[in-house]
Structures are given as C-alpha cells and as structure tokens.
Computed example of a mutant assay.
Amino acid sequence: MGSVAIYIGAALAEIAGCFAFWAWLRNGQSSWWLIPGMASLALFAFLLTRVDADMAGRAYAAYGGIYIAASLLWLWGAENVRPDRWDMIGAALAIAGACVILFGPRG
C-alpha cells in the first residue's frame, strides 16, 4: 500500500475517532461512542507507522496536509457544510506542502 493511501486511511481513522469524542462531548451522544472512537484512533496511530519514511517527524509533517484536506471532506460529507474557496485554497497549499515533504529528493 502506497504512502498516500496509508495517509488517507490514517486521516479517515483519526477524523472518525475524534468525531466520536466530539459527538459525545459536544453533541450529547452516548459514551458508547468512545469505544469505536478509541479503536479508530488506535488504527490511525498504527497506520502512520506503516508509512515509508525515514523519520517519524517527516511522516507526521507530510500527513498534516492530507489531514487538512480530509477534514474538509469530512466537513462536507458528514456535517453537510460545503467548504468555501478559502478552505479549498488552504487545502491545496497544505497538500502541496505535504507533497514537497513526502516526495522531495533526499540525498
């Protein structure tokens, strides 16, 4: 599985896990939401260890751009709020930065 696919899976797992906590604390959902939330956050952490990167910090930095874009997709898909042009510009800049970090030549 390629690094980009792993990052996308990690982003979905992290956002879903964090949203479970949000639903419990902010939306008044049952504390049972925490069980799949914690499992999802554990999956997120596991997936980030599968990225082909020489250093953890570099893997996490590149992941940041993917996370930003995935968060805006979550905003649109799960919360029914369409990202505006400033959201999209910010996501494009973040993805560009992630690509520089992830695919930049290393000597």
Rank of each mutant, 00 (worst) to 15 (best):
D84A: 12
A92G: 12
A16R: 05
V4T: 13
A11W: 05
Y60H: 00
C18V: 13
W33S: 08
I35L: 15
W32K: 12
L75T: 09
I35K: 06
P105D: 08
W86H: 14
I95W: 02
A20P: 11
V51P: 02
A56R: 11
L102K: 12
F44G: 04
A10G: 08
C99H: 05
F44N: 14
L34I: 15
L47I: 00
G107D: 13
A92T: 11
V100W: 13
A13S: 12
P105Q: 09
A96H: 02
G28K: 10
G107F: 14
A23L: 14
L75R: 11
V100F: 13
M88F: 06
L73Q: 03
C18L: 13
D84Y: 06
F46T: 06
I15Q: 10
G37A: 02
A92D: 09
W24F: 15
T49V: 04
I15P: 08
I35R: 11
A45I: 10
R58A: 11
G107P: 14
D52F: 01
Y60T: 02
A70N: 10
A39P: 00
F19D: 15
A11V: 04
G28C: 09
A61T: 14
W76N: 04
W86Y: 15
L48I: 08
S31F: 13
G107L: 13
A98Q: 06
S31K: 06
G64N: 07
A56I: 02
R26T: 08
V51D: 01
D87R: 10
